[in-house]
Design a binder for these strands. Sequence first.
DNA 1: CGCGGTACTGCGCTTTGCGCAATAGTGTTC
DNA 2: GAACACTATTGCGCAAAGCGCAGTACCGCG
Lengths: 109, 109
Amino acid sequence: MDTSQLLKGVLDLAVLAVLRDEDGYGYDVLRRLRAGGMGEVGDASVYGTLRRLYKAGLLTSYVVPSDEGPHRKYYGMNDAGRERLVESEKAWRAFQETLDAILRKGAVA
Amino acid sequence: MDTSQLLKGVLDLAVLAVLRDEDGYGYDVLRRLRAGGMGEVGDASVYGTLRRLYKAGLLTSYVVPSDEGPHRKYYGMNDAGRERLVESEKAWRAFQETLDAILRKGAVA
DNA sequence: CGCGGTACTGCGCTTTGCGCAATAGTGTTC
DNA sequence: GAACACTATTGCGCAAAGCGCAGTACCGCG
């Protein structure tokens, strides 16, 4: 079973959701997602997604040196990110419903 | 908004679902999916998926000449396909719930 | 001093959906 | 009857995104 393909296009959404209420750095975002049930998500995927979202102007970023370990690159939401989160969530819900409908009725006949 | 990424790993499931009750040929499967709400799905994606599933041993295939147009390549389910459908559906439901939970609570805090 | 946990970057691979062109048969319209 | 539109399939090459893995680096502990 390849859960990884299901993540495509949805990891963005998950990452944004996890950052909605509180800023977080990569490693922490990874932990939040895993704690939330996404045990299969790879670390590189999360770091990549964060960079992608930042580059797209949806996140802010600032580095904080840590006393107990390497520096941490925090990411936080801005207005564009919040807007995107709402849109993506809507798209997700619509898609979900569409697929569920198809699963329910099988062939339209 | 890029709905296409949401399809990844799920188009298989949709195609199998649509073939569950009745055999169908590519063009028809495409129509069923579009009628079911997947207006954005590309024809090449469906043909590709059918070939992939067939190659994976999940579908049977037979060609039927048509009186009114080109020949049609029908696809039908076999036991492996049916089994896969059930599994994939289960995986989909689980994934759905996981993501919804993350969307609900945001940061685990 | 090496080992394990924390934390990030970069590289290359794979899967998969997509656009587009080509091929081909049929019916319609001007 | 030539052009066009719809049906129906194949193949090619592209792009997006998740992943594994290696490398770097910093810390504390035994």
